[in-house]
Structure formats: C-alpha cells, structure tokens
Design a protein around this nucleic acid. Sequence first.
RNA 1: CGGGGUGUAGCAUAGUGGUAGUGUACGCGGUUUGGGACCGUGUGGUCCGGGUUCGAUUCCCGGCUCCCCGACCA
Length: 421
Amino acid sequence: MRQSQLFTKTRKEAPADEVAKNAQLLIRAGYIHKEMAGVYAYLPLGFCVVEKIKQIVREEMNAIASQELIMTSLQRKELWERTDRWSDEMVDVWFKSELKAGGEVGFGWSHEEPIGEMLKGHLSSYKDLPISVYQFQTKLRNETRAKSGIMRGREFVMKDMYSFAADEASHVAYYEATKPAYMNVFRRVGVGDDTFVTFAAGGAFTKFSHEFQTICEAGEDVIYINREKGIAINEEVLNEETLSSLGVTKDELEMVKTAEVGNIFNFGQQKATDLGLAYKNEVGETVAPFMGSYGIGVTRLMGVLVEKFADDKGIVWPKSVAPFTVHLVGLNLEDEVVRDWVNGIYQNLIEHGIETLFDDRDARPGEKFADSDLMGMPYRVVASRKGREEGTFEVVTRATGEVRRLTEEELYADFDNDPNT
RNA sequence: CGGGGUGUAGCAUAGUGGUAGUGUACGCGGUUUGGGACCGUGUGGUCCGGGUUCGAUUCCCGGCUCCCCGACCA
C-alpha cells in the first residue's frame, strides 16, 4: 500500500474526548473513527488488524473442529421470552426496536438463544453430535457507561462459539480443549505470557466459569495469580472455600489488574433444557445435549494490544497482527534516480510476500519517522539517497529500537529466517 | 442508573454582554529536506431550543452530547 493513497492521515494531537490510551493512539494513527460513545468505525488500517486477529482465532477454532457460520443481528422476542431473558429487568443491555409490520425485535447482545433455536432444525439424533459452531459477530449492548476506548463499547466484535455434546465426558473434554486453543490465540497475538485461565463466577450450572485474563493496567478486573502453580482467581470468587479447593493460600497469590479477553461457560444440560433443544439417544429417549459457550473479544483484544505494547512514540504492533510488516520510508524521493530505486525496492518487497506500507509521500523525513513510530509497524525500512549509494537500508525494529544496516539480500534473508514474518 | 464536569473551525485551544483569536490541518506561492521546518497568503467556527437584554458565543432555564467517578457487566 502506498501511503500517499491511504485516505487516513495521522494527527499530532489526541482528541479531547478520549482518555484511554488505546483510543487516543488508534485515532491519532488513523486506525479507527469514533462514531459515538462506545461505538467506533474501523478504518482501513484498523480493519486490517481486526481481520488479522480474526484469522488467528479462526485457525485455532477450526483446529478444534468448530465450524464457522454467521447468525443474525436481529433477534426474535419470543426466543428470549422463553428463557425469561427478554425483559430489561433480566437483561439490562438490550437494544430493542419495533417492526413496522408489528412486533418487537432485539439487537443481538448474545446468540445463545438463537443458536439453540436454530439447531433444533439440525440436531435430532445422537449421531448428529458433537457439534461446535462459531461466528464473528458485532455484538450490540446498551451499556450504561461505555468507556476505555474500544475495550468497553456498545458495539464490538466478538468471536462466540457454542458446543453441543451427547454426554458429559465428551462435553467436558471439549470444554477443556478450548483452553489450549484459546491460549494459542493469545500466544500468537503476543500476550501468551500475560494471559491466565482464571477461575470466575460460574452462574447456575457450574461452580466456576473460566475467564482469560490478560495483565493490563487499563483493564477492569483484578485477579490473583500464582505463576508457579498456574493458578489464577478472579477477585469476585476469592474466598476461603475457593482457596482451599484450589490448594493455595492467599499469601501465595499476586494481585494484578487485568482485562478479560475471553471466557468460557459450561452450561451442562440446563441451557438446552431451557431452550427446548433435545435429541434422541441410542435407545430412543429424548435428551438435552450438554452445551458450552465460548467467547473472545476480538476488538477488545486489539485494544489490549495497543495498551500493552505502545510506548511514548505510539503504537507497537506484534508482527502477527500488524496491518503491514514493513513500513518502507522513502527519503529523497524528489531525486528521480532515488525514487525509481525505492519504487523498485517496494515492488521487490511485495514480490517477496512482505506486506509493506510504502511512505511515498512528499513529506519531510521527521514527519515520516514520527508517523512511522505512531502507526507502529514492526519494521521500518528507510531507503534514501545515501542508502542507494551504499546499497543498504536502515532497518529499525519498532519494539526494541534496534537499528541495523542491511543490504537488500540481507533484508530478505532476515525475513525468510524469521518464522513470525 | 446516581454524582461531577464538558461543549468555540476537520483537530487542539484562548477570549468576550457589543464585528471571535491562536496553533495545527487544508488551498496557493516561495525557501527547505534524516526526527512532526520556515516565510507570505487564503478558506473555515461559538451543540440545540427557549428566556433576560437594544444586543447573548458569554447570563438564566430545559434538552442533547461527550468525558470522569460509582453502580452494572448472564
């Protein structure tokens, strides 16, 4: 992508109505646009990041045999009345509207009820199980107070997955299998070491649910962790009973501020029973399947990455989710010889399969460097008159600030040898 | 939902009961070119509705908006 063609521009100053670092930087760098409180548009660069995260999630969900689909945003009132979750007293985040043809609809804040209803048409025998499906959906939630930029919005992208199993053993096995799959996602986006499978309030069906909590100062949660024992407990369930059942004492635990980037719920058979979802078992009995629900906050995760990795100059993307791997900064482009050479470099990078943002703008070096730092691509490759004369580039690693002078061959070799790029 | 703030140009800000200023961004001309350069010039603005007043961007009332703290977050 040529930066001169990119319709977004950077800003020097952060918007006055944003305090959250993630929103300030993402807006300044041109990744997102604030439409209203808690509602953000994803511009080309931001869209790229969302898609990269989604692709990682997709690969990991596919790897545990889940099938992608997409449900609807408009939902039927009757469905939610059946489980007593239509009223605003029971669920306070509903957006609702009326059909001109008559009747009410809800805007999807969750898809548990619709997915269960939909499956009634597809699940009739034990032979149909197990089933796991997932989607990437824009969830709409009428939060009374949106905050923290893209980390707590009224509209956000979530991956939600639902599993259905015939017996408890296979159900629990699947539930357990989602944990490493989720951790793979968090490891791949760069927060594996700081993300903990956390015991949390479980609701009516099991003692605990599990949250995936990532250490992040901008987060809303507090958890207690013990890295050696691999134990993490949400403060909401931190009590003597929990501690003794997990075999730890409170003074073995470290308190950390975290953001919830994922959660998984085990509903047992209760949810399917409530939904009226059932199948025939081997002996012809009507049985409710075991059900699980599994979420990952895609856009929240993006916000967490900005919060965790940004420095005083701007965003620092992990390679796996950066919109582009290389920010090619062309200098002295007014010189036709240099310009032709840098254009050639740009083409070569593309041909080597390296995603490249090429700053071909008619701007001064300082501005280009500042923008490059702000936008946060993993590598900055500076190609200038001096570089052409020497046959080298300045290659700067954004995360560490490491500066190297490499020839074109060395540059490609470097990328070829790096499995992450 | 309770409490506290806020609203002036695309963005960031100053100021005033009497023709609204600056920076940035943008247009044009020129000088520049390795860390957001500079000179000249130009375009562009008081959240909405009432009230007080000769006159309101300013004061008052209401609404809306956005932000913060708290509550909430199956």
